[in-house]
């Protein structure tokens, strides 16, 4: 038995090394360098809480937090709602069901760069197809991602993020809906439940664990938003307006453009804590609306 234990350690060693070197070590090291001045080229110099204090003193930090919360608050409900409705429709006896599923899933596999460029064009104030379409109804052109109001900018970007992510959430919810027992739905029909009542009183309660998972995953992805901003604004070097920055843009800029690994790590850790708190908050309310039985 003891000999078996010994071989167990040997066989798991490669995976343990992998986790320690590529997961635990970077996490611990990033926590350490958040208290240092480190430019990648010279040894880190201990600076205590300087990076953290400087971060809280900068407008940019608070603006990025305001933006990412607004972005998440718009994006998560929109994405969950659309994913739920699309999944419900695709779960019906439709012709060309597979084609529709493919269509809704295609944006998920579209590279962000390509998607970002196309959407930047569609959002263009003067030449964009969206404003052209609004013009057909005599609606004045809208500044979408270059609006004076940061909230309009965040809402516009959230719409693009829904386009990109709705397919993935839809697949999760569709899988849940396909597990709804037919007998239950039939029993509901016999008792006179309308389609709407079936959806709200039978389907939704049964798939709430999936909905909860979609909400959690969407929230985390919203707080980690990065490529969508980079794609729409044309890159860090193009000078993304301060009113439109989100935390991951700041992390990327500080670390890989300015080589200020200390402030970048501090920001990354703050983002981690924010996501942790938001997820725990969601978990606190889980039992009130998620049904596992």
């Amino acid at each position: 038995m003891r000999k078996q234990n010994y071989w167990g350690y040997i066989f798991t060693l490669p995976f343990v090394i992998n986790v320690v070197v590529f997961l635990i070590f970077p996490v611990v090291f990033s926590a350490y360098i958040s208290f240092t001045q480190y430019d990648l080229f010279n040894a880190p110099k201990w600076t205590g809480l300087t990076n953290w204090i400087n971060m809280f003193n900068k407008d940019e930090f608070w603006i990025s937090m305001r933006n990412v919360f607004a972005f998440a608050l718009i994006f998560v409900p929109l994405q969950t709602l659309f994913a739920f409705l699309i999944a419900f429709l695709l779960n019906q006896a439709l012709r060309a069901k597979s084609l529709f599923r493919l269509m809704y899933f295609m944006p998920v596999v579209t590279p962000w760069l390509a998607g970002g460029v196309v959407w930047a064009w569609m959002f263009n104030h003067q030449y964009g197809v969206i404003n052209w379409f609004l013009g057909l109804f005599n609606i004045d052109p809208v500044h979408w991602i270059d609006n004076k109001s940061w909230l309009v900018v965040m809402a516009s970007i959230a719409i693009v993020n829904v386009w990109k992510g709705v397919g993935q959430s839809m697949i999760i919810l569709l899988a849940g809906m396909q597990n709804v027992p037919k007998e239950v739905l039939e029993a509901g029909q016999i008792d006179g439940a309308s389609g709407w009542k079936q959806l709200t009183h039978i389907v939704f309660p049964i798939v709430t664990p999936m909905v909860y998972m979609v909400v959690i995953l969407s929230t985390i992805s919203a707080f980690q938003a990065f490529d969508i901003f980079l794609g729409l604004f044309g890159g860090i070097q193009a000078g993304i307006p301060q009113q439109s920055v989100v935390p991951n843009l700041v992390v990327y800029r500080d670390s890989f453009v300015l080589f200020k690994m200390g402030p970048a790590s501090a920001m990354a850790w703050i983002l981690f804590f924010v996501i942790l708190v938001v997820t725990l908050f969601q978990r606190y309310f889980e039992k009130r609306w998620v049904h596992y039985d």
Binding site: H143, D146, N147, K148, I236, A238, G239, P241, Q242, R253
Partner: peptide, 20 residues
């Protein structure tokens, strides 16, 4: 330069490109 140029570029974009 890389750092301050970005700051100026952000503001120039808002004033010259977007007019915000």
């Amino acid at each position: 330069w890389a750092e301050w140029r970005l700051l100026v570029q952000q503001e120039v974009n808002e004033a010259i490109v977007q007019g915000n």
